[in-house]
């Protein structure tokens, strides 16, 4: 393991204000993630696991404490700087796929590269290769409504890879697909891990624990690792 963690959380607290009540979702979390780890973050709903993932993936900033990504304190960045970091370093896979319905599979995959200013030919070439690699070479011109749940999630995975990020975060990636398809998707994520990427999966599905190198449990905003 390298001396400097890829992601480091230092006494991270996240508090939401709902009406007049302050709800502390993350209660001072310390966590280090090394490059190339495969982590499953396990917890019941309302445990704060999604909030933790959001903070780790630069979608959100902590109320207190610090988040370091490759040594950089990202908790000090503004929204646009965070967007830049996400675009370059992190690939997102969502439970509900979150594809744009009126764009083709290929266009959906290329989208994150648009914001990085890649040329169109570059983007299309890479997107086509990625769709090919997830077995959707024949379905590139189809729009999401024409694709099955498993196909949509594979498009989403291809999209997460377009900017070649070091970290892939997935929030319940198998939540909306059947068991077999879920296994295929986990297979793809395992392949990506073997390529050297850090994989962080949030789930309440205990079966996914089998794929993990490291399992982190969260309950009531506090971690317990085993």
């Amino acid at each position: 393991m390298s001396s400097k963690p890829q992601i480091k959380l230092d006494k991270v607290k996240k508090t939401y204000r709902i009406g007049k009540i302050d709800l502390e979702v993350l209660k001072g979390i310390d966590l280090e993630v090394e490059a190339g780890e495969f982590i499953v973050l396990l917890g019941p709903s309302g445990s704060g696991k999604s909030t933790l993932l959001n903070v780790m993936s630069c979608l959100d900033v902590p109320t207190e404490g610090h988040v370091y990504l490759d040594g950089q304190d990202v908790s000090l960045l503004n929204e646009d700087q965070l967007a830049g970091v996400r675009g370059r370093k992190i690939g997102f896979v969502f439970q509900q796929f979150n594809l744009l319905h009126h764009l083709s599979a290929l266009e959906n995959v290329t989208l994150p590269a648009v914001f990085q200013g890649r040329s169109e030919s570059q983007r299309k070439k890479r997107a086509a290769d990625l769709l090919e690699s997830v077995g959707l070479g024949e379905r590139m011109d189809h729009t999401p409504p024409e694709l099955s749940g498993g196909e949509k999630q594979r498009v989403a995975i291809a999209r997460s890879l377009i900017n070649d990020p070091e970290i892939i975060v997935a929030d319940e990636p198998t939540g909306e697909v059947d068991t077999d398809t879920g296994k295929k998707i986990m297979g793809i994520l395992t392949d990506l891990h073997e390529e050297g990427r850090t994989i962080i999966i949030v789930t309440h599905d205990l079966e996914l624990v089998d794929y993990a190198q490291r399992v982190i449990r969260i309950r009531d905003g506090v971690l317990s690792e085993k």
Partner: peptide
């Protein structure tokens, strides 16, 4: 709204 959230998640800045 959700689409905008996705675009932002995958790296779209405010000006985009």
């Amino acid at each position: 709204v959700k689409e905008i959230g996705v675009l932002k998640a995958v790296g779209a800045k405010k000006r985009d």
